[in-house]
């Protein structure tokens, strides 16, 4: 076991960790917003929107994330330059990067999984609470904002914690589209120093620590609201 490489590679490791965390935060943040929309459409939307939202969730949950990522990066990525003027625009430096495609595909994928969780949670909110809100004269928007959504999110919280950890474990896939995330750094260290297991072990420790932090954070959030058992 030789860990002396850490001294020369720690800036790269830190940068990789930042990329990993950034991917996680972006995909969970935007994915959650998207998931709320998808879940609401599935519960109260008109029929054709319901069917579309369902189809979206089925398709994204039924295919591997790796294929979705490659479809975006290689497929859409190869079509993008055909849009006239895009190459010259200010967007191009972002659209060229693997990070952009990784962030988009992780977000879309996370939204599909999260929407299923939220759909169940929205349906699990006791009817009486919604009726109570309505009888206070709340408009449907206020009802959603003050009662329905907060209650649903609270019900789903333990599952959401699990989904976020799963999302963290999906982020190393970004390395297949040239993102220098934590795993890609370990890969580079392996190529430079010919050490196979040590970089993997360091990276693993980091992922396990992040998992612990996430679960701890969600425990704290869950403890904010007293539950009667």
């Amino acid at each position: 076991m030789n860990f002396s490489w850490i001294f020369s590679y720690w800036p790269l490791l830190a940068a990789g960790a930042v990329q990993t965390v950034l991917l996680l935060v972006i995909s969970v943040g935007f994915g959650f917003v998207l998931a709320i929309g998808l879940a609401l459409t599935q519960v109260i939307g008109p029929r054709w929107l319901k069917v579309m939202a369902r189809g979206y969730c089925t398709c994204l949950r039924g295919t591997p994330l790796l294929i979705q990522l490659w479809l975006l990066y290689y497929g859409v990525g190869s079509l993008l330059p055909m849009i006239p003027g895009l190459r010259a625009s200010f967007l191009w430096p972002i659209l060229r990067e693997g990070f952009f495609f990784a962030a988009v595909s992780f977000t879309l994928n996370y939204a599909a999984y999260e929407a299923e969780v939220l759909r169940g949670a929205l349906l699990a909110v006791p009817k009486g609470e919604l009726e109570a809100g309505r009888s206070f004269g709340m408009s449907s928007w206020t009802l959603l904002r003050r009662i329905w959504l907060p209650r649903a999110i609270r019900i789903a919280l333990p599952t959401i914690a699990g989904e976020v950890v799963l999302q963290l474990k999906a982020t190393p896939l970004a390395f297949t589209v040239t993102v220098m995330d934590l795993y890609a750094v370990a890969y580079k260290v392996r190529q430079d120093t010919l050490l196979v297991y040590e970089p993997l072990m360091v990276v693993t420790v980091f992922y396990v620590c992040l998992t612990l932090i996430i679960t701890r954070a969600f425990k704290i959030v869950e403890a904010q609201v007293p539950v009667r058992r």
Binding site: K169, A170, T171, P172, L173, Y183, Y197, T204, Y207, V208
Partner: peptide
């Protein structure tokens, strides 16, 4: 707790 990709490669 370990990402599948790392487990599989490892």
């Amino acid at each position: 707790a370990i990402p599948e990709l790392i487990l599989i490669i490892g």
